Measured scan of single mutants.
Amino acid sequence: NARWTTEEQLLAVQAIRKYGRDFQAISDVIGNKSVVQVKNFFVNYRRRFNIDEVLQEWEAEHGK
């Protein structure tokens, strides 16, 4: 399903906090979204969920 429920959106943001840009890991956490759908989520929801800021926090924690 290409549509993202609110629950899936929140799950994705939590997974980004945990896995950074590991699209496969994020896809696995959500369970019903492909890697391509996760990559599209990054692009389409970047502003709404401040994904750049979430990634900066992840990179700071993981030394990337």
Rank of each mutant, 00 (worst) to 15 (best):
E61V: 09
A60Q: 15
F41C: 01
Q24I: 10
L10Q: 14
N40I: 06
Q37F: 00
N1G: 10
A60L: 11
E61N: 14
R17A: 06
F42I: 11
L10A: 13
F42Y: 06
E61C: 06
V54T: 06
K18L: 10
L11D: 08
Q24N: 05
V54W: 07
G31N: 04
S27T: 02
A25Q: 08
E8I: 08
A12E: 00
A2C: 14
V38T: 01
A2S: 14
K39F: 00
L10G: 08
D28P: 01
E53N: 11
Q56K: 14
H62I: 10
N1I: 14
E7D: 11
V43G: 09
K64L: 11
Q56G: 10
E53D: 11
R46T: 12
I30N: 03
G31M: 06
I51E: 06
A12M: 14
A25V: 03
V38I: 07
Q9C: 15
E53H: 11
W58T: 06
R48K: 15
F42R: 02
T6A: 14
I51R: 02
G31Q: 06
K18D: 04
N1R: 05
K33F: 05
V43S: 09
V43E: 13
Q9R: 08
R17V: 05
R3P: 08
V43P: 01
Q24A: 11
G31I: 01
R21T: 14
Q14D: 14
F41K: 01
V36Y: 13
I51W: 08
Q9M: 14
Q9H: 07
R46C: 03
N1L: 10
D28V: 06
N44W: 09
F49P: 05
I51H: 04
E7N: 09
E7T: 12
Q56F: 11
F41D: 03
K64Q: 09
A12W: 02
R48S: 11
V36I: 11
A15F: 02
I26Q: 01
D28R: 15
A2T: 15
E7R: 11
R3G: 12
Y19W: 07
D28L: 07
H62L: 09
D52F: 05
R47H: 15
Q56T: 13
W58K: 08
Y19I: 01
K39N: 04
F41N: 01
E61T: 13
L11C: 07
R21P: 11
K39M: 05
R46V: 07
V54R: 09
F42H: 05
V29I: 07
Q9F: 05
Q37R: 01
A12G: 09
E7V: 08
W4L: 08
A12N: 06
A60H: 11
V38M: 01
G31V: 12
N32C: 05
R46I: 07
D28K: 12
W58I: 08
S27V: 11
K18Q: 13
A25K: 15
D22I: 00
A15S: 07
L10D: 12
V29W: 12
L11N: 12
N32V: 07
Q37G: 04
F41P: 04
W58Y: 10
F42Q: 01
I51L: 15
N44G: 09
F41T: 04
A60F: 10
T5V: 00
V54L: 15
Q56P: 03
A2G: 09
F41E: 00
V54E: 11
L55P: 07
A25W: 02
V36H: 11
F41V: 01
F42E: 00
R17Y: 00
R46G: 15
S27K: 00
Q9G: 14
R46F: 12
L10P: 01
S34L: 04
Y19E: 03
Y19R: 04
V54Q: 07
I26F: 10
K39G: 04
K33P: 01
G20Y: 00
F49E: 07
K64G: 13
L10Y: 05
G20M: 00
E8F: 03
E53S: 12
A2N: 15
E8H: 07
Q14E: 15
R47W: 12
G31Y: 13
D52V: 04
I26R: 05
A15I: 04
V29A: 14
A12R: 00
T6P: 13
I26W: 00
R21I: 09
R17S: 03
V43D: 13
R21E: 14
V13H: 12
D22G: 02
L10E: 13
I51Q: 08
D28S: 11
G31D: 02
S34A: 08
D22H: 01
Q37I: 01
Q37E: 15
I16E: 02
N1H: 04
G31K: 11
F41M: 01
A12P: 03
V13L: 14
N44A: 13
I16K: 00
L55S: 05
F42S: 03
K33Y: 03
A15G: 07
Q24P: 07
H62D: 07
G31R: 10
